[in-house]
Amino acid sequence: MDFEDRIIAALNKSLGRKTEIKLESRLKEDLLCDSFDTLMIISALEDEFSIEIDEGNFSDIITVKDIVHKLRSAID
């Protein structure tokens, strides 16, 4: 599984939404994430990539693609 797919799989696992999650999906508008969902996503990503994520760094995330960029730079 490539990097993007792992992120989408983590989102699917944590949110359990019926909506298809794409890189362009917006967390609030398309995936209807509330603040607790965001914590669920962070938790799932920490689990998937064995890293610690500060939720403050997630405040400017709008789309799934933003998560990919943010995580890639954190891991690289």
Partner: peptide, 17 residues
């Protein structure tokens, strides 16, 4: 850190790390 509702496997993964 939230865990999925009543999901013990998820909870244990969080506890492990």
């Amino acid at each position: 850190r939230p865990f999925l509702h009543n999901d013990m496997e998820y909870l244990e993964r969080l506890l492990k790390r």
